[in-house]
Design a protein around this nucleic acid. Sequence first.
DNA 1: ACCCAGAATGAAAATGGTTGTCAAAATCCC
DNA 2: GGGATTTTGACAACCATTTTCATTCTGGGT
Lengths: 129, 129
Amino acid sequence: MTNRRDAVHDTLRRSEGFRSAQDVYAEMRSDGAKIGLTTVYRALQALADGGKVDVLRTDDGESVYRACASGDHHHHLVCRRCGRTVEVAGPDVERWAEAVGAEHGFTDVTHTVEVFGTCASCSAAVRAS
Amino acid sequence: MTNRRDAVHDTLRRSEGFRSAQDVYAEMRSDGAKIGLTTVYRALQALADGGKVDVLRTDDGESVYRACASGDHHHHLVCRRCGRTVEVAGPDVERWAEAVGAEHGFTDVTHTVEVFGTCASCSAAVRAS
DNA sequence: ACCCAGAATGAAAATGGTTGTCAAAATCCC
DNA sequence: GGGATTTTGACAACCATTTTCATTCTGGGT
Ligand SMILES: [Zn+2]
Ligand SMILES: [Zn+2]
Ligand SMILES: [Zn+2]
Ligand SMILES: [Zn+2]
């Protein structure tokens, strides 16, 4: 049997956008997988720690995960209706963040940058409703 | 007696960095204020909804609030050790976020941008330890 | 194959920030 | 003053996440 962590990773890869631990758990169970919620949490944490998946927090405090195609540093453009996600690079933003930190004497500068919006197909769906 | 909401707002204004609801509650109580935790939560929510204070989520999922000097759209450079916060503007970042959204057909584009680091005095403190 | 130590697993209980409930208290309005 | 309305806050409920801990793997070593 394939390693649990790999199974979780695979489920994530099969998804389009960011998914919560409970989401992943529910999907795996409905696919017939025999796995516990705790293990899903642990696998996602490990994957995130190892940089294999990206994490972000929704407005209501849930952690959501995504297996991004790019292994390099990047950010996300996320549809706030359907979750569809586009990976985007922003060299200017990287430089800006560094500069802002340095300008005020800060070291070990990191940043979080996420862009949200309504994707084209969701806009269309709303208009049609 | 001053309005509860104003009391909460004042307490926040007296603070340097971002503070959690429980923080604010504890501080007000130790200052002798007669107020309930629920009310502090409600006041902070109302202030945030009205754009009077800024909110962000810590890594461990706590919502933290700050009464910023600037009423205009801005971002934060936060010391991850002492919480000291600098308000920063980033016109380039604003334009970049808009452009990225538009480029992929997204509408109603918003963004979250936060910069973290270790401030000069905390760096000094660490070095001295 | 057998044994055992250490790692992985997961069901159930605990945690903890946040929100809901609802009765009491303050405030408004006539 | 008196009734309607809003605000308050003690307490209980929520719910994602973490911790516990007993059980189940796993991978040598013999
Ligand atoms: Zn969409
Ligand atoms: Zn970046
Ligand atoms: Zn500092
Ligand atoms: Zn901005």
